[in-house]
Design a protein around this nucleic acid. Structure first.
Length: 469
RNA sequence: GCUCUCAUCGUCUAGUGGCCUAGGACACUGCCCUCUCACGGCAGGAACAGGGGUUCGACUCCCCUUGAGAGUACCA
């Protein structure tokens, strides 16, 4: 039994797209599941659009996601000699030929075919022409003219194409550079790929690739064409739908595990299970339960998963990433609680780390304005005795910890014969500027003695000022 | 146009001929918990695209229609 070898082959023409990662994840999972190898290959033969900075972001994104590879990254541009060698062999064997047709002729041909409602394709003009001309040429693969080429797709089942539908595709451009459909075949063959898992926009390429592979005498791998991810409008997921690059998800405060969990369930299921550890994904993933229809990306569900993983995470493990988010939000954390303690009280009420950072400003810096509604509702003259009573008690607290602070609030409510909410809410607005925060006692503790007392005094002044009007 | 692919609640999905008066999750609504928010708990509305077959019996198998997507490049 040969070992499973899968690959992920992004092209560095942009950021790493979440759709690509969706497919790559399945590829990675299969390799892990069968204790095989996962290979990373950068398809950079499009010199015009490939950039090395994109290679870097792809590598970084893979690392952030924790999708490690056993081999690579390989670069197609470093394998040019190999492609040339194969092309020469094909030429020698008569399995490929020089085509001298001009772009103009091809364009004209295409227009005519379209006008006649025919499928545009190369007409084989140079197929049987053996003279060597002294003018620019491309190399075409001599595709079989008859018969069918079929394969059993891991997700779609049996698929077959008539060779008569295919034409002689170009495998090397006029400048000698090899094209995609040719390189993939050579690479997958050379790298011993056993499972070609890719987006289903490649199904139409598959029969051509199989024909080339056969010409090369290679053994066909298993193909698995994963359905595309759609945006909410039913169109292919793209930038105009919001975040699509992995980097963007990170910047937006998502956790890699949440994203992976979301993606693994997008198109695949294991009964009713929604939450998967990495080990469970590896253990349970299979093509039998992979849907063959395209799925729509739903940010709401991702958000839910992210909150779930935020809640489950050890606070210490979130410190580093939150630190970066705080910096980005322009909040200096030098004067305020430890991030670990902050995370501990905030994580379960936030959907993302960005969310967490934004909701935590008042722990580190004084606010200049109160939330208008909260202020109008809670900082009124009736509240003055409440705040004063709380203030007096708080000032006597020597050990500034949640427990004694909680007692102060309770005692005030009892003294003034008020429901707890009538005391807690005004204090909350006083110390946070808004109506939402973690439980009051821990909030007081984390904001600290000095700041808390100061803010309550300020709030009392606000209430008194309101009296004048 | 041609070729290929796809079709269950708004969304992700369970369902592999009888277990389906179609299950779960997200979202939504209501209630409970409660110092706010969130968490958690409970309840509710919400789907088999349409039409033909096959079968004792179709969400499940076949065909057609409709709709959607992909490819049709000297891009990948």
């Amino acid at each position: 039994m040969t070992t499973v070898r899968t690959r992920f082959a992004p092209s560095p023409t942009g950021h790493l797209h979440v759709g690509s990662v969706h497919t790559a994840l399945y590829s990675w999972l299969i390799a892990k599941k069968y204790k095989g190898q996962f290979i990373l290959r950068i398809e950079d033969t499009d010199l015009e659009r490939s950039e090395s900075t994109h290679v870097q972001t792809i590598l970084q994104s893979m690392e952030w996601l924790g999708m490690d590879y056993d081999e690579g990254p390989y670069f197609q541009t470093q394998r040019l000699a190999r492609y040339k060698e194969v092309i020469d062999q094909l030429l020698k064997d008569g399995l490929a030929y020089r085509c001298y047709c001009s772009k103009e002729r091809l364009e004209h041909l295409r227009e005519c075919q379209l006008a006649n409602k025919e499928k545009p394709r190369y007409d084989g003009c140079c197929r049987n022409q053996h003279e060597f001309k002294d003018c620019p040429f491309v190399i075409r693969f001599r595709n079989p003219e008859e018969g069918v080429v079929a394969f059993d797709d891991l997700v779609h089942g049996h698929i077959e194409f008539q060779n008569s539908e295919l034409d002689d595709l170009i495998i090397a451009r006029a400048d000698g550079s090899p094209t995609y459909n040719f390189c993939v075949v050579v690479d997958d063959l050379d790298m011993g790929i056993t499972h070609v898992i890719r987006g289903d926009d490649h199904v139409n390429n598959t029969p051509r690739q199989i024909n080339i592979l056969r010409a090369l005498g290679g053994k066909e791998p298993l193909y698995g064409h994963v359905p595309t991810i759609l945006g909410p409008d039913g169109k292919k997921l793209s930038k105009r739908h919001g975040a699509v690059s992995i980097q963007q998800f990170r910047d937006d405060g998502f956790l890699p595990h949440a994203l992976l969990n979301y993606l693994v369930r997008l198109g695949w299921s294991h009964g009713d299970q929604e939450i998967f550890s990495l080990d469970e994904m590896i253990e349970y993933f299979d093509f039998d339960h992979l849907n063959n229809s395209p799925a729509t990306f739903d940010i709401e569900k991702l958000l839910w998963l992210n909150q779930h993983y935020l809640k489950e995470a050890k606070s210490e493990d979130l410190v580093q990433e939150l630190d970066a988010q705080m910096a980005k939000a322009g909040v200096s954390i030098l004067d305020g609680p430890d991030l670990v303690d902050l995370i501990q009280v905030q994580k379960e009420r936030c959907k993302t780390l960005v969310d967490l950072a934004e909701k935590s400003r008042y722990f580190y810096e004084d606010f200049t304005e109160y939330d208008e509604k909260a202020k109008a509702k809670n900082l009124k003259k009736e509240v003055i005795p409440v705040l004063q009573s709380v203030l007096t008690k708080l000032e006597l607290v020597s050990h500034w910890k949640a427990e004694p602070l909680h007692a102060c609030i309770l005692q005030t409510a009892e003294d003034l014969d008020l429901k707890l909410g009538k005391v807690a809410q005004p204090v909350r607005v006083a110390i946070t500027g808004g109506s939402v925060s973690p439980p009051l006692d821990v909030t007081l503790e984390l904001i600290g003695r000095h700041r808390s007392l100061h803010r309550i005094k300020e709030a009392i002044q606000i209430c008194e000022a309101g009296l004048l009007h």
